[in-house]
Computed example of a mutant assay.
Amino acid sequence: MSNTALLERTAPVRHLRAVTAPVPTVSPEPAPAAEAPAQRALPPGTAPRGFALYVGLDEAKAAAAGVSLGTIVEALRRTISELAPNAETYATVALAPVGSGGRDVDVVRLALHEPSAIARTKQDETEEEDRAPGGVVVDISRKRVLIEGESAAFTFKEFELLQYLVLREGRTIERTELVSSLWHAGDEEAPGERTIDVHVRRLRAKLGRYEDIVRTVRGVGYRFDRHADVVIRYGHGTPSPDRF
């Protein structure tokens, strides 16, 4: 056999061996594990038992998104049930006065008595009082009235009367409703429908030049009208009912 023929037979073999020879591979370095979020130090003697998720969303905004608050609550419950079947859930709705300012979630935290939100509100109220605001401040949370920065000497019944009207702002309250709601059978000084006028006059006298915030609706009763120089502090006592 010639040398040329030998080369023709052996060359493909050498080429195949070169192609199929194992190629050393370098194993990629394992990706670093994601760091767990830093945990805040817990007060001594305490342990986590659950969590609260505050959601700032009113019915109108939920409807605009094509859902309702109840739908969102049920979706969250299903997710929690899938992740942790033994978890117990409880949901409530946060109520606040109509027109309350601020971010929705902050209003929710305050309505549901979240501790840090309450502490911040108390600090804000203290700073506001230090500025000695003028006008009238009806402080529902502390059961008091400030006039030109000074505490007014309202009796318990006088404050209740003013508070009843304030909480029904813009609605005329009949004398019969005031008597039945603020006085009970057996009260020594329970007024009649006519003598309620005497209590209103005393209340107005203590309001001084702001007496017209309590208006008389002839033949019907009384109404509270908000003025620019009147501030209402509702505080954090609004009840939040079980709704879901």
Rank of each mutant, 00 (worst) to 15 (best):
T79A: 13
A34D: 14
T216H: 14
L167T: 11
S141V: 10
E59R: 11
G237L: 06
W183E: 08
A34F: 08
A84G: 00
G149T: 12
A119N: 04
E148K: 08
R144Y: 03
T79V: 10
S180Y: 10
R215W: 02
P32E: 13
G235A: 01
Y90T: 06
I173A: 02
E114Y: 11
A60H: 11
R120E: 06
A34V: 11
V198H: 10
P28A: 12
Y164L: 00
E129W: 11
A64G: 11
F51Y: 15
T10F: 14
W183R: 03
P191R: 02
S141R: 05
E169P: 00
V217P: 03
G101N: 05
S151W: 06
E114D: 11
S181I: 01
A75L: 13
I118Y: 00
R144F: 02
G237F: 03
T195M: 02
R171V: 06
L165V: 00
H184A: 04
Y54K: 03
R233I: 01
P37F: 13
T176D: 07
E128G: 05
P239G: 00
A96E: 04
A52R: 13
G102A: 13
E114V: 00
A34Y: 09
E59S: 15
A64F: 00
A65E: 12
R194S: 05
P133N: 15
A34C: 05
G70Y: 11
G102D: 09
Q163A: 10
E160L: 13
G170C: 04
A18W: 10
A91G: 03
R204C: 07
G66C: 05
L203I: 09
D212R: 12
I140L: 12
E160P: 01
Q163R: 07
R204Y: 09
A185C: 01
S116C: 00
R131K: 15
V98H: 05
A47K: 08
A185M: 06
S181V: 10
E125R: 09
A65K: 10
Y164R: 07
H236E: 01
L162E: 05
E193I: 09
D106H: 11
R223M: 11
D197P: 03
R103F: 14
R175A: 14
R194E: 05
T10M: 15
K143M: 02
A205P: 03
M1K: 06
H184M: 08
G149L: 12
H15N: 07
V214M: 07
G56K: 07
L6F: 10
R9T: 14
P133S: 15
H113R: 13
F159Y: 08
L69E: 06
P133K: 15
G66L: 12
P239Y: 02
Y164C: 02
V200Q: 06
L203W: 00
V93D: 00
V138E: 08
E193D: 12
V55H: 10
V98E: 12
K206M: 07
V67P: 03
E74H: 12
P37A: 14
R223T: 02
T121E: 13
R215T: 14
V179E: 04
E169V: 08
